[in-house]
Write a protein that binds this DNA or RNA. Structure first.
Lengths: 147, 147
DNA sequence: TTAGTCGTAACTATAGCTATTACAACCCTA
DNA sequence: TAGGGTTGTAATAGCTATAGTTACGACTAA
């Protein structure tokens, strides 16, 4: 259990999942099951299947049904950045404007939205730039180094 | 109502609040009440008081009690960056590791935590760098320009 | 003494993430 | 063609954070 339970662990789980599949495939297996991945991640197989569904929609993973079914990578680990993963699973922005529209008759209430949006756009861009620097190949290298 | 209601609007509200106080003080008033600010933000005064309580703890705002009570800035708008505000009100990191510890007997489960932590540290650093670039004076300038 | 505001507790509502159960759909293999 | 393992997905519940609201004691200038 981590210190802050509120923040998103989706990116962590997604990176874990894809890295696991990549390593498993390199060891000679064709497909990985959500059951196997869930055992490594320590969660429920359905959580993995749902997440992999989103990753498949983004063109990062693929699945096979029926007997001998399972999941595989759609691209090599080196061709997937954490930004790819982030964009596949993150729905909204990190920061939001007001829930309820602020008073438009007030100077600040009127102008604060655009002003903050400009800042938030820059912040998100910086965040994406940073995530784009790391591929899942890099992640796997770090993982194996720690072993 | 904004498009994504889930993300944090706390930074937006906090910046709005401090900017409002700053402008109000420049117009000759000594203190601003949570009631006035809440009218501009379009929320409940208690929400503003709670937030200003955190900002005061961080040394950004100050309050006076009793009759003629209210809030004032502890520093000039130019001396407050959005990073200051962010650090005063944001509790946790943007990204989290797994809720439940992943399987330590699995290579990936064992090494993924440190690997992702390294990335997340860089991302948070980039985010902070970006927020530090903008002061509330900059925000007020943008706000007045939009009017 | 009074009136206005802060400071804070308590409660409710909403939304997202995670976890879990259940089951139909699918398809390889024997 | 029957069996069995796995995907795909709906439904539900619990937890947490944010937000909104009411209520009321604490404080202090006038």
């Amino acid at each position: 259990m981590e210190s802050d339970v509120s923040a998103n662990s989706r990116l962590t789980i997604a990176a874990h999942t894809l890295t696991w599949i990549g390593l498993y495939q390199r060891r000679g297996h064709e497909v990985a099951t959500s059951e196997q991945i869930a055992t490594s991640v320590n969660t429920n197989p359905v959580v993995i299947r749902r997440l992999l569904g989103e990753l498949r929609k983004a063109g990062l993973a693929d699945s096979r049904r029926g007997a001998g079914a399972g999941w595989m990578l759609a691209r090599d680990l080196a061709a997937i950045t954490l930004l790819d993963v982030y964009q596949a699973i993150e729905p909204g922005p990190v920061f939001a404007l007001h829930r309820a529209t602020p008073n438009p008759e007030c100077v600040v209430g009127h102008g604060i939205g655009p002003a903050m949006t400009a800042v938030y756009d820059d912040v998100e861009a910086a965040l994406r730039r940073e995530l784009a620097k790391t591929t899942l190949e890099d992640v796997l290298r770090d993982v194996l180094k720690a072993a």
